[in-house]
Nucleic acid binder design. Structure first.
Length: 730
DNA sequence: AGCACGCCGACT
DNA sequence: GTCGGCGTGCTC
């Protein structure tokens, strides 16, 4: 007889059920095994938590376990991590444990690069006449052993493209759940010397590793300061101790460079866990990690659950990135999970960022984390020179369009010198909204109650649900009169304006619209890297992780967009974004230049990002957070109610508020319910309650108690989502 | 989550 | 008198 935690959103304490064992499964069913069990006439996934002799009271008949999955059972440590997850993020044990288990791996067709060919050259040659084949080949080289479906999706190609590559002998197919990966093992660079700051940081990591007790270090290094080299050497040290390493990156596709560096340094000892590449490929890498074949694991947030047994080091690159927060159950933050795993194994956590999250930075200032600084770029080049342009002033002087006179002058100058320019605007489309000048209404999505974005030539699009209509020619759909006007420039408009101003320049645009086809992201960027583009226009896609040596000017067309979001982290997000985008300028030796246009250049997030002054920004922002009792000085939890009938959504929220107030003393503030800033999405009304308190534990306690009394009404059709430590407040 | 059970209003 | 709304409880 076994106890199984089923992966359903059951209340705590009522989620573990007993099953009997058919004799043929008896051997495989051990604690930590992933199973499928019959539950109310359906098959449900679950994880075995315990073996037991006696049948529990009040149970007449036990149903048998239906199936045991192939993957290895979870070791005791990860079972305990699952218990912690359920408790910390208020989900059922089964839901938490399922997130930790490997996806069921199956044998199927996998693709590998040919070993005897110069693939770099092949990609180059193919890209001229067969761009699809070039893309597919590049993906196979980057992810050897990738499964068919993932490859088709990732490269954005058809099956016939793969056949063509196979016929040319550039790739080979294999039926495998996994086979050791053939790596082009570039010899490690041994002569490369560290800067004094890097060496100092590394020695502190080494000391921490030698202590073999849990430690957290924050590597605060400016853009280009060589954080990755510190990660690589720290990983070597951990490996030399016979311990394993987990490297977390916010998004694996944007972290190609980091992945490649780890691959060239550690060869086939690296496993890439990549959920975006599909469950199956992730399954095969997972098994390599389980078998101990790959002591270095790189992946996005879920890689924090990698089944390594002697963990020495966890690296979180760009630790401030919100992508580390999972937005589905279990809604964990990979950084917090990393801390707990490190505590279990006496491991070191190395958090890296140029703009640390205030949560992390405050802990470092308080001495809970060791603070390591890399204040200079490795190549000795100065940080870019940043100029602020006051748009109010510019408009008074008769500026038309979206570019100030000063920014245009700088662009002209760079073009003349054959250097490259990035123009950044965090808004896509042609215009942010369309307003009727006779009735004053803004054209909104009927399902989301969000302003529709205008795209040239005549499309109105909802960015949340993709509702689309042709723009009503001339007349307003509400009042019938004409007078429709476009407001708020987006990247499409930028591109059009800059084309008109510099007709001879080669211009490319990088945003969600131009990269909707898979692989086009890489195509555009490699064109920029080959200097086939003079001006790159784009949304925040151009801000992250790019290293384009030819770019000497970055223009921020409107720095205020993220600042106006109704979110207490708006200033922090704005600062991070501006700092990151400014860091794109001047990475190839030539001094970089940045122009930031703003309507409120006196705002501290803006002028301090212009000065690249993180510590002053952090000090000011922390003072505000303290005053208004926001994280990191308090803890938040958020309960979101959604449903088709707004009054029912509201009623449910009000009911929970009463329950919460009954439980909460004066230590916990219950805010709301109120409509979410995004009050209606995809036809569902949204209300939320925010809980705020100094003690995270009592906050969770109160929520749990209140939830126990919540009798959800089956017919009312109101969904309730619980988010502990929410990052998304919209 | 998803389904059965059971208790009160408007209907062939 | 029934059909069916929805609130409640249970699932090994």
């Amino acid at each position: 007889m076994v106890q199984v935690a089923v992966a359903l959103p059951l209340p705590p304490g009522k989620e573990v059920f007993s099953y009997c064992l058919p004799p043929e499964l008896a051997e495989k069913v051990v604690p930590g095994a992933r199973v499928a069990v019959p539950f109310r006439g359906r098959l449900v996934a679950g994880v075995v938590v315990e073996l037991k002799e006696e049948i529990p009271e009040g149970v007449k008949e036990l149903k048998p376990v239906t199936r045991v999955e192939e993957a290895k059972p979870l070791p005791p440590k990860l079972l305990r991590l699952g218990e912690w997850l359920a408790e910390r993020y208020l989900c059922s044990l089964g839901e938490a444990l399922l997130a930790l288990t490997a996806p069921p791996g199956e044998k199927e067709e996998c693709y590998f690069p040919a070993e005897d060919r110069d693939l770099e050259e092949a990609i180059e040659v193919l890209s001229r006449r067969f761009p699809a084949q070039a893309r597919a080949l590049a993906v196979v080289v980057a992810f050897p052993g990738i499964d068919r479906l993932s490859l088709l999706r990732e490269a954005g190609v058809k099956a016939q493209t793969l056949d063509a590559l196979w016929r040319k002998g550039l790739i080979r197919k294999e039926k495998a759940s996994f086979k050791a990966l053939p790596f082009p093992s570039t010899p490690p660079e041994t002569g490369l010397s560290l800067t004094p700051a890097q060496a100092k940081a590394l020695s502190r990591v080494e000391e921490a590793l030698n202590r073999k007790t849990p430690a957290v270090l924050l590597l605060h290094g400016v853009t280009g300061s060589g954080k990755t080299e510190v990660y690589l050497r720290a990983a070597s040290l951990a490996l030399a101790q016979g311990r394993q390493v987990i490297v977390l990156v916010p998004e694996i596709v944007l972290a190609y460079q980091v992945v490649e560096q780890f691959r060239s340094r550690f060869g086939d000892r690296v496993a890439v866990l990549h959920s975006a590449l599909g469950e199956r490929e992730r399954g095969t890498s997972w098994q390599r990690v389980e078998r101990g074949e790959a002591p270095v694991v790189i992946g996005a947030r879920s890689a924090v659950f990698a089944p390594v047994s002697h963990l020495g080091l966890i690296v979180l690159d760009e630790e401030h990135e919100p992508a580390y927060k999972q937005e589905q159950v279990p809604r964990y933050h990979a950084r917090e999970v990393a801390l707990v795993r490190a505590a279990q194994d006496g491991a070191v956590v190395l958090l890296g960022s140029a703009t640390p999250s205030l949560e992390t930075y405050a802990r470092a200032l308080a001495g809970h984390y060791e603070l390591l600084k890399l204040p200079q770029r490795v190549d000795g080049s100065p940080l870019p020179r940043v100029r602020l342009v006051d748009l109010r002033e510019e408009h008074r002087r008769g500026m038309t369009g979206v570019f100030s006179h000063f920014l245009l002058e700088r662009v002209k100058e760079k073009l003349k010198r054959g250097e490259q320019v990035i123009l950044f605007l965090n808004r896509r489309g042609f215009a942010a909204f369309v307003l009727c000048r006779s009735c004053g209404r803004i054209l909104r999505c009927p399902y989301c109650d969000i302003a529709l974005t205008f795209y040239r030539p005549d499309l109105l699009l909802c960015h949340y649900c993709h509702y689309r209509i042709r723009r009503p020619q001339l007349s307003c759909p509400y009042c019938g009169k004409g007078e429709l006007e476009l407001y708020g420039a987006g990247t499409q408009r930028l591109e059009a304006e800059i084309k008109a101003l510099f007709p001879e320049a080669r211009i490319a645009r990088l945003d969600a619209e131009t990269t909707s086809r898979r692989g086009s992201h890489g195509t555009i960027l490699s064109a920029v890297a080959r200097r086939e583009v003079d001006i790159l226009v784009g949304t925040q896609m151009v801000a992250k992780g790019l290293n384009l040596p030819g770019v000497t000017l970055v223009g921020v067309v409107n720095a205020d967009i993220t600042l106006s979001l109704p979110d207490f982290r708006a200033a922090e997000r704005t600062f991070q974004l501006l700092y990151q985008v400014a860091g794109r300028a001047g990475r190839g030796g030539a001094p970089g230049e940045v122009v930031i246009q703003s309507y409120c250049p006196e705002h501290y997030a803006i002028y301090l990002s212009a000065r690249q002054d993180f510590s002053t920004f952090a000090r000011r922002e922390l003072a505000l957070r303290r005053r208004f009792e926001y994280p990191p000085f308090t803890h938040l939890a958020r309960v979101v109610f959604t449903g088709v009938a707004e009054n029912k959504v509201r009623e449910q929220a009000l009911r929970l508020r009463e329950l919460l107030l009954a439980e909460a003393g004066d230590e916990i503030a219950v805010l709301g319910p109120a409509p979410c800033p995004l009050g209606k999405l995809k036809g569902f009304w949204r209300w939320h309650i925010i809980l705020k308190g100094r003690k995270a534990k009592s906050l969770r306690e109160i929520l749990r108690k209140a939830m126990e009394q919540t009798r959800r009404k089956a017919g009312a059709e109101v969904k309730m989502v619980l988010d502990v430590d929410p990052l998304n407040m919209l």
